[in-house]
Design a binder for these strands. Structure first.
Length: 229
DNA sequence: CCCTGATTCGC
DNA sequence: GCGAATCAGG
């Protein structure tokens, strides 16, 4: 899968909506969680409450992930070299810190600036578009971007059945019932590690090969077994 | 264990 | 540009 404009748009939308990278990856399909995060960063979408981000500016530069193989202790000008030149990544954008205007004249007579950098309250509507408050004029909101509303498919969670959308790497994918039927769902138990099914269903999926003659009639297979044409 | 996002770096 | 591998916190 490649990052088409559409998929990028979906990514942005969902990212801004606060969906996790995993959810986005799952929704887009064909990409990993890492791919989503990587793309998000490359797009400049940034800053999302990260569990690993609490710490800030430790005196020691972040430990290099990979100690240079076995050479060049030289001042490697790697990617993270730029100290503070361009409008690089604003680590913590906010920080209004308006220059303390009147240093000397401490006259309390300057009610000019209420100094209230009101945090913009933005809510997100379905589809990921941003709502504005009444007074929030920001004229050129996206000039009617062709933002497509994403179908809210996992909305009506049907019972506690494990649906196709609930399947993950570690959920038993043994089908129960038949596709198309109203109550068709998947087993949903934790898998037998290394297999797509839980222990119980592995037992049904993988039968020991018995010696000829002692074969037992094959157990029912998912979907009624291989179709014979 | 599971999850999360951030970062690096070979491709 | 991409994303797997890795790190690191919850």
């Amino acid at each position: 899968m490649s990052w088409t404009d559409e998929r990028i748009d979906q990514l942005k939308s969902m990212w801004e909506k606060g969906l996790t990278a995993s959810q986005i990856a799952e929704e887009l399909g064909g990409v990993s969680r890492n791919a989503v995060i990587g793309k998000a960063h490359r797009l400049g979408l940034q800053s999302r409450p990260s569990p690993v981000k609490a710490n800030e500016a430790p005196k020691k530069a972040a430990a290099p992930r990979k100690p240079a193989p076995a050479a060049a202790p030289a001042p490697e000008t790697s990617r993270a070299a730029a100290p503070a030149a361009q409008p690089a990544a604003p680590r913590h954008a906010a920080a209004p810190a308006p220059a303390p205007a009147a240093p000397a004249a401490a006259d309390a007579a300057t009610p000019q600036q209420p100094a209230a950098p009101q945090p913009r309250i933005i809510s997100v509507g379905p589809g990921g578009f941003l709502r504005q408050g009444p007074g929030d004029q920001q004229a050129p909101i996206p000039p009617a971007p062709p933002r497509r509303l994403v179908p809210a498919k996992p909305s009506p969670e049907i019972a506690d059945k494990t649906s196709l959308l609930d399947l993950t790497e570690r959920i038993c994918k043994w089908p129960v019932g038949h596709p198309g039927e109203p109550d068709f769902h998947f087993c949903g138990e934790p898998v037998n590690p290394g297999f797509p099914y839980c222990v119980e269903h592995c037992g049904r999926a993988y039968q020991a090969q018995l010696p000829r003659g002692t074969r037992r009639p094959p157990p029912p297979l998912p979907f009624g077994g291989p179709r014979v044409r």
